[in-house]
């Protein structure tokens, strides 16, 4: 009788010990998905979509109206590149990558999956530029405006999320109707951002990330 009691007590002890070990182990280790860590970085109070929407309508579009004419810029880049970069370019980062806010007008020469190729008006028809219709990504549009400062934001992830939202507005609200109506031979007016490497200036392949586009058939 005593033996069986002892055994029962031993068994209860084992069960309690195992339960305690399981409890401690379960509460000591936890797993988080990498995606959750990634999503946790921007601050929760900041809403990049509403910030970008307000910025696009109330600051970027008005600012783009006063952008440099692309023909004028190309001409200065050919003759006085340093002056062109000093007067018209913006960049938040130090280094050779600089952005220009530009505007212009031209005739649609051809179309590909990634771009609408436009022959600029007013430059004796020598210059073709690409208006990007596929790859509208990155910080070019945000930074070309010269209207934003990284140090006004608490972290770089938050600051970059503004670019993603501005680019999304352009991809979803500006490009679909433009791509639909952009027939070869149509007249197009544009404002946009271009990126040029100051050390290796190449104006033979200018790509415009559009801000605003209008077709005049």
């Amino acid at each position: 009788m005593q033996k069986s009691n002892m055994r029962r007590i031993k068994l209860i002890k084992y069960i309690l010990t195992i339960a305690l070990i399981v409890f401690v182990a379960y509460n000591s280790v936890y797993f988080r998905k990498l995606d959750e860590v990634k999503a946790a970085s921007p601050s929760k109070s900041f809403n990049p979509k509403s910030f970008a929407s307000d910025f696009y309508k109330n600051k970027l579009l008005p600012r783009a109206d006063s952008a440099v004419d692309l023909n004028v810029l190309i001409s200065i880049l050919k003759t006085q590149p340093d002056e062109a970069f000093k007067k018209y370019s913006n960049a938040l980062a130090i280094g050779n990558i600089r952005y220009f806010l530009v505007k212009g007008e031209g005739i649609i020469h051809s179309k590909s999956d990634d771009a609408v190729i436009v022959k600029l008006k007013g430059d004796r028809g020598e210059t073709n530029v690409n208006i990007a219709i596929e790859f509208v990504y990155g910080n070019a549009i945000r930074d070309a405006s010269g209207l934003m400062n990284l140090n006004d934001f608490s972290n770089t992830a938050e600051f970059n999320s503004i670019s993603e939202s501005i680019n999304e507005i352009i991809r979803k609200e500006v490009l679909p109707s433009f791509v639909r109506d952009a027939d070869v031979g149509s007249n197009v007016k544009f404002t946009g951002a271009i990126e040029i490497n100051r050390k290796y200036v190449d104006i033979s392949l200018i790509e415009i990330l559009p801000i605003d586009l209008s077709i005049q058939n």
């Binding site: 960049a91 938040l92 980062a93 130090i94 280094g95 050779n96 990558i97 990284l150 140090n151 770089t156 490497n197």
Partner: peptide, 10 residues
């Protein structure tokens, strides 16, 4: 000093 100074990547 600017709190953050980005450097362009190519």
């Amino acid at each position: 000093f600017a709190k953050k100074v980005p450097v362009a990547v190519e």
